[in-house]
Simulated assay, not measured.
Amino acid sequence: MENEYNKKIKILHVAQAAGGVDRYLRTLLKYLDKDKFENIVVLSQDFKKEDYKDIADTFISIKMERAIGKHDIEAIKQLRKLIKKYAPDIVYAHSSKAGAIARVANIGMKNYCIYNPHGWAFNMQVSKKKQSLYTFIEKVEALFCNKIVCISNAEKKSALDKNICRENKLQVIFNGIDIEAYKQPYEHCIQRRNLNIPENAFVIGMVGRISKQKAPDVFVEAAKKIKDKIKNAYFVIVGNGDMEAEIKKYIVNHNMQNCFHITGWVENPMEYIRLFDVACLLSRWEGFGLVLPEYMLAGKPIVASKVDAIPDIIKSGENGILVEPDNAEDVKNEILRLYGDKSFRQKLVMQGQADVKKFDVQRVAAEHQRMFMDIVNGES
């Protein structure tokens, strides 16, 4: 495809799932060169137009649902009309559902197509039947895109293990956080007293959805074990989700109301992370785990599960500690170790703060820019 040097590369981004994908897309668009790229975003009803006011050239909302159903046909039709209308150089689909809709809608169009699964659906803890279905869909739809962006080496390995596509179609671009934004001073810093946390408490926290993937049940089970050993331990979960009632019931049943705080959904998780003495991510599966570099940036020792992409970020004993998934006893033992060894905690923190530079979203944007230019100029 011919690309004149004075013409911006037009990219039409498609996303259905908000949450982490929303954050990823917003930070990516923030740092893409606006003199070189025009960004059109076609997003589901779960996204907010005002969030894209200064970073996208065009914002369009269409109805897209997470579950597979007849409504997908209408979404494909609407998206195909928009692709014809805007004639982008590149269609870039973010996450599994948008990837399925966009790649079908784009069949036969004269542009390039990129897909970023943000964590393969077939790696989730679902039935074998669903895993097989998701794998089949990914294999078929891989035929209808030029590049698949993997946000970790683990994601690339999964694609090759499942024979999703040939290796040269896969490109690893590690995920990143907006380090520059975190350097800005906060208007209102949350203090321990705001959450009724004692000043002398040893605070163990996790940030993430209170859902099966993030294993909040393992966190609270470990919390009970830790509280028996560390009398001034206090626990914080930053987030909300479909397991919230179950987790709160466990807290009440084990008489832990006075040492546990659940924030619900918050706009500013970093302010809560600053209150932690130890930060956890105990996921059962994980496409990347963006909160891990956030923990590093905040100077917190990390305990994380040894699954999927997490070992790409955490090197156990160097910049954090890895534990087996679904193992509350393992979590307890490692947190007791951190509690008792301040110099070890400091060692992990110092290495984490050095390593976090590798996970800067400005590097993510720069790698995307090179990929976009190479694809349009026929070099990839």
Rank of each mutant, 00 (worst) to 15 (best):
L282V: 07
R284A: 14
R284V: 14
W285P: 01
W285K: 04
E286Q: 15
E286S: 14
E286K: 14
E286W: 15
F288K: 06
F288N: 05
G289H: 12
L290G: 07
L290C: 06
V291G: 05
V291R: 06
V291P: 00
V291T: 11
V291Q: 03
L292S: 09
E294G: 12
Y295R: 04
L297E: 04
A298K: 01
A298N: 06
G299T: 09
G299F: 07
G299H: 11
G299V: 07
K300T: 07
K300Y: 04
I302G: 03
I302S: 03
V303K: 06
V303G: 07
V303R: 05
A304F: 02
A304N: 02
S305D: 13
S305K: 11
K306E: 10
K306N: 15
K306V: 02
D308H: 12
D308P: 13
D308K: 15
I310T: 09
P311G: 04
P311C: 06
D312T: 12
D312S: 12
D312I: 14
D312K: 12
D312F: 09
I313D: 03
I313W: 10
I313Y: 10
I314A: 00
I314V: 15
K315P: 00
K315E: 12
K315W: 08
G317E: 13
E318D: 09
E318R: 03
N319W: 00
L322Y: 13
E324C: 04
E324Y: 04
P325K: 13
D326S: 12
D326T: 13
N327E: 10
N327R: 10
N327A: 12
E329W: 05
V331A: 07
K332H: 02
K332P: 03
K332V: 02
N333A: 14
E334H: 11
E334K: 15
I335D: 00
L336H: 02
L336V: 07
R337A: 08
L338D: 05
G340L: 06
G340D: 11
G340V: 06
G340W: 08
G340C: 04
D341K: 11
D341P: 12
K342I: 15
K342T: 15
K342P: 00
K342N: 15
S343T: 15
F344Y: 15
F344H: 15
Q346I: 12
K347S: 05
K347I: 04
K347T: 14
L348W: 02
L348P: 03
L348I: 03
V349D: 05
M350Y: 04
Q351M: 01
Q351R: 07
Q351W: 02
Q351N: 09
Q351F: 03
Q351L: 00
G352T: 00
G352A: 02
Q353D: 01
Q353F: 01
A354I: 09
D355H: 00
K358T: 08
K358I: 03
K358P: 01
K358E: 14
K358C: 02
F359T: 00
F359H: 01
F359V: 01
D360R: 08
D360S: 13
